[in-house]
Design a protein around this nucleic acid. Sequence first.
DNA 1: TGTACATCAGTGAACGCGCGTTCACTGATGTAC
DNA 2: TGTACATCAGTGAACGCGCGTTCACTGATGTAC
Lengths: 215, 215
Amino acid sequence: MTETVRNPRERYRAQVRDEIKRHAWQQIASTGVTALSINAIAKEMGMSGPALYRYYAGRDELITALIRDAYRSLADAVRAAHGAGTTVVALAGVIRRWALSDPHRYLLIYGTPVPGYHAPEDITAISDEILAVLLQVCGGPADEAPRTPFDLVLGMNRQWAAALPAPTPAVHRALSFWTRVQGVLSLELAGHFTPMGIDAGLLLAEEVAELGSER
Amino acid sequence: MTETVRNPRERYRAQVRDEIKRHAWQQIASTGVTALSINAIAKEMGMSGPALYRYYAGRDELITALIRDAYRSLADAVRAAHGAGTTVVALAGVIRRWALSDPHRYLLIYGTPVPGYHAPEDITAISDEILAVLLQVCGGPADEAPRTPFDLVLGMNRQWAAALPAPTPAVHRALSFWTRVQGVLSLELAGHFTPMGIDAGLLLAEEVAELGSER
DNA sequence: TGTACATCAGTGAACGCGCGTTCACTGATGTAC
DNA sequence: TGTACATCAGTGAACGCGCGTTCACTGATGTAC
């Protein structure tokens, strides 16, 4: 999140950029992305509005930075879990806890798209990182034969997909894993479970239990 | 959507209320819920801003009406499909087509919650209608014994759940159906599939195929 | 070590905009006798 | 059938607010000799 820099002026810049983001998250947490206001952040920091333009070219660039950090954070969490050795059920739990720890951060990425906004290249790369881990936890691409009709589900227009010989059961399990996690979390975070008294954590575990690497 | 009324004045009122909603949906479709503006709608209709206050007490009441209509529309679509006899796969297709036909309508209900907004009672009732149909398509509550540990997933604090003797496999299948549909649709509508070339329709069919009534 | 200069963080005023909502009002539409 | 009255849709002005962004500027901080 923080870029490390020797130069004292650059160091200060990085600090302020971080503080701006902290306040931005705080604001998003209370009123949502759309209410995110440069002026409001500035006021909260005891600065005048235009001052922030020294640090971000405008509102869109700030939002981009927030989205990037959110993806980065999730990618790190998922990677760490995988590095420590994890199962599909445990990984789902990690993702869920990550989402619950800051619902608006999750929603910024996977919720209703910010109108008029389109993510730059490097962000989809981080998103691919996440999917790569899922793929490994769901069994990896090795020693698996392509299957039908799942082959049709996946086109081949992306590196991580193109790197595979063909869609495999593991790829499909990873995809199922991902959509099922999203399904439970999007409903849970939007509050659609609370009036029904559903244990979302347990439901999620049940949903992904069968998607392990089968080894 | 339109209330039928004899009285000519009331009739006119209902027409205008509908026209306001039509413009509201149009606006939501182009810029999202948060950009929804009473003044903008009025201008589009060739009226002054305050005129709309004759028809809706304020912005929140208008949004409530839109949300209610959205739920109503989905409930009708799902009911109609069930009435004509449907399978889990076909029903998932119906829901998906409903969502794709107006993504913002779907997102208004199941996307990121509108900050500060809370739905009135009668809306959760419509939501229950939908779930009731799902339950029937997934096998119905009849002649099924409770099972563990799924029993824990569902609490019993809601009518349609309380009406059941206990959580059954069918209830759990309905819940799985619902979350899996949400998972695929929320990712598809947010555009997370397009760069990967995934056939969301096929994926959805695969996801719910196993959740039929097993009769 | 001290001075001259360049860099750059932050200010305050301004621009133009749109928002939700209130209020007192005009004028048309329906209703009662 | 015609008149008197009540209802109510819609207007225009106004209030107070916040937004993103630009611009010319002050003053502090770092750099080069």
